[in-house]
């Protein structure tokens, strides 16, 4: 098995570093474009009796009397030292808020993608093999609808449906269980498993499944479409025709020849859909009342919680790079021609 070269890993880490640098510079410069006093924006547009005080504190924190490059330098320096400031909404360090919500979102995303990828591949292959038959037509229309219907809308329908059945799956964990698990990773699913509480594990997983299914719809539908398209394309390729001429069986041609060639494309696809799924996750989290990046943003918007938003930007950027690195590595392993 081929592994990525050291050169590649160094390059990836450098990219991550420069991206965070870019995000920080961008967000800091953006403040200066804001109408009015930057300190006013930084303090979250305060109103009322304590406004004066808050603005003064923000001015001090930003160091507005120093030259711009020095301001940016301190800003970046502080960030890399782990001091991400205080969230205006949560009154807690941003780093803490971000990691807590990130773990919650990842929990949902991991469950969603482990539903989406296998199911998408299986259905996509079925669709490609029975192209033009009823199964394919149904799958095609279904995937078209799943892509074009907003996931938050499907989630609302699903949620109302569950309510009508009398199933309440609001939140990440039943309130009565909340204090019974010791927090280690931050994910209730994993924490309950570590502490061996099966009933809590079942409860948290049950609560994660419906929103995860909704988040999974988009990547799954896209996988079906891409596989359907590219398997048909691969079946046109010379090497598949030649394999037929050598008398290989149908299943062998489909799985070992056509599907094998699709894996790099699927891996690349999910590197990209991941970013898009974060938006879906955000809306679905809100509907199902779960913590996560999405609900953090919804809570941050009314308070103009700028430090929290910067933290979220940087972290989701790093997350994107990590996911794409994994997707790159899968491509290298699955395609002998690619080298990185």
């Amino acid at each position: 098995m081929k592994m990525p070269s050291l050169n590649y890993i160094i390059k990836r880490i450098a990219t991550a570093f420069f991206v965070v640098l870019g995000v920080l510079m961008l967000t800091y410069v953006l403040i200066y474009f804001s109408p009015g006093n930057p300190a006013y924006t930084w303090a979250g547009r305060p109103r009322g009796p304590k406004a004066e005080e808050a603005i003064k504190a923000a001015e001090e924190e930003l160091g507005l009397n120093k030259p711009l490059y020095l301001q940016i330098y301190t800003h970046i320096n502080r960030f890399f030292k782990g001091d991400w400031g205080l969230s205006l909404r949560f009154k807690q360090p941003v780093l803490l808020v971000v990691t807590r919500n990130l773990v919650a979102s990842l929990e949902l995303l991991v469950v969603a993608f482990s539903i989406a990828i296998p199911l998408g591949i299986i259905l996509g292959v079925v669709s490609a093999l029975y192209r033009g038959y009823l199964v394919d037509k149904v799958l095609y229309v279904a995937s078209l609808l799943l892509i074009s219907f907003p996931r938050f809308w499907i989630a609302i329908l699903f949620y109302v449906f569950l309510q009508m059945l009398g199933v309440n799956l609001f939140g990440r964990i039943a309130p009565s269980y909340m204090l019974m698990v010791e927090s280690r990773v931050g994910s209730y699913i994993i924490d309950s498993l570590i502490s061996g509480r099966v009933e809590i594990f079942a409860d948290t997983l049950m609560r994660a499944l419906p929103p995860a299914v909704i988040v999974a719809l988009y990547p799954m539908a896209l996988t079906i479409r891409v596989i359907r398209f590219s398997i048909s394309e691969k079946l046109h390729e010379e090497y598949v025709r030649q394999a037929m001429s050598y008398g290989l069986s149908r299943s062998k041609i489909v799985y070992r020849y056509a599907l094998r060639g699709v894996i790099p494309a699927i891996s690349q696809l999910h590197g990209i859909t991941f970013a898009y799924s974060i938006v879906d996750t955000a809306t679905v989290e809100n509907i199902f009342g779960r913590d996560g990046i999405g609900s953090a943003i919804v809570k941050a918007i009314p308070y103009n919680d700028y430090p929290l938003i910067i933290g979220l930007l940087a972290v989701s950027g790093i997350l994107f790079i990590v996911v794409n690195t994994v997707s790159d590595i899968i491509q290298v392993i699955s395609d002998p021609r690619v080298r990185i």
């Binding site: 390729e237 010379e238 090497y239 025709r241 030649q242 394999a243 001429s245 050598y246 008398g247 070992r256 020849y257 094998r260 060639g261 699955s334 395609d335 002998p336 021609r337």
Partner: peptide, 17 residues
Amino acid sequence: IVVRIPQNPLSALNPYL
């Protein structure tokens, strides 16, 4: 009974195997 020898052998071999 019948086997074809391809026109362009390199594109006729599975690149992943």
